[in-house]
Design a protein around this nucleic acid. Structure first.
Lengths: 189, 189
DNA sequence: GCATTTCCCTAAAGGCTTTAGGCAAATGGG
DNA sequence: CCCATTTGCCTAAAGCCTTTAGGGAAATGC
């Protein structure tokens, strides 16, 4: 009997691909076993549970996203940096909808703290260096940017902007314009 | 044998309660049958499928949200209206996390068109009457507001803002301030 | 009072998750 | 090179969920 050469790494990566292709809600250990042409139980040597598999995909996505973010932010500041990071999230979600959905999973505190999630907060904060904000407004702005990026990407991907003009690319550009303007003219308390 | 008095309406409503209490991902037809102390197959006379039940809860949530929105917007304009609608979403999501999660389901186009979803777009657009925006910026702004409301509520509910000062209520207030300022000083193309 | 409709039931098939235990393939020390 | 150990995938089985088919009893109305 020829072995399939499974490893946790490869199982999680294949799970991410399956989620991207079939949708995150279609991701099951059974479907993944079929993809490897292997019996279901075999996967349980590499993955503790279905939940564990999903968490693994979430961690993978968070890391890939953070890597892209770091690369995009290098050498950029101000509005350039803002648009670059926004595009990273938007493009990633379009390319990898399943992974992006996984990245929204609620992780338990310990896992979250050890994840690339902290890099995301740092990246957003880095953008704000190009604007004149001090604490606590900086934190407020970090949260606002996170909300807009996540909210926009989710709604667009979910089809919330379908069937209405103008097209979403134009809106996205103008949203970035608006955020830049807002950060340059942040209202005083 | 005493009948349980099931109707589609009551099944969906109980499903919404179950989703709120146990989490949307814990919502199953089986769990719902247990709650009614009835056999699983009995529910299938009132609900076509598990998916159908979830869709029913989504439609219920969209309608409840729209009702609350209409009530909150009545007699308000400008920043007052902006804050009122934002609070409707935020409060609803906190009170009814399961329903709110259901409301994010992707509905098929026909169902979506017949849902209260269209009222939501109208409500957001109504807020903008208090600001000086013309098309296409009005649509851009509608989408931005939708993104912020949805994104903020989702992140806050998902614990994305936990373990970091300042508290989320303060941020929420300042986010509304910021959105108001942005709408009053919307950048020109 | 009886026929019809409505409602909930039993039964059963099929899929997913997860655990337990087994055999065969890879690995490596003697 | 051989044999022992480790590793990897398998079979088997239990439990829960979804969904459909068909039956019997309660409610309804003539």
């Amino acid at each position: 009997m020829v072995r399939a050469g499974l490893t946790t790494e490869r199982v999680v990566r294949a799970g991410a691909e399956l989620a991207d292709e079939a949708g995150f809600d279609q991701l099951t250990v059974s479907a993944l076993a079929r993809r490897f042409d292997v019996k279901v139980a075999s996967l349980y040597s590499h993955v503790k549970s279905s939940q564990d598999l999903k968490t693994g995909i979430a961690l993978l996505a968070l890391e890939e996203l953070a890597d892209r973010g770091d690369a995009a932010l290098a050498g950029r500041a101000g509005k350039d940096a803002l648009a670059a990071l926004g595009n990273v999230y938007r493009d990633y979600a379009r390319e990898h909808p399943g992974r992006y959905a996984a990245a929204q999973l609620r992780l338990d505190p310990a896992t979250a703290a050890a994840s690339a999630g902290v890099r995301h907060a740092r990246m957003t904060r880095a953008i704000l260096r190009g604007y004149d904000l001090t604490e606590p407004d900086q934190t407020h702005a970090v949260r606002l940017l996170g909300s807009v990026f996540h909210g926009y990407v989710t709604l667009e991907l979910g089809g919330g902007f379908d069937h209405s003009a103008p097209d979403t690319q134009e809106t996205w550009t103008r949203v970035l314009d608006a955020l830049d303007a807002l950060l340059r003219n942040w209202p005083a308390t």
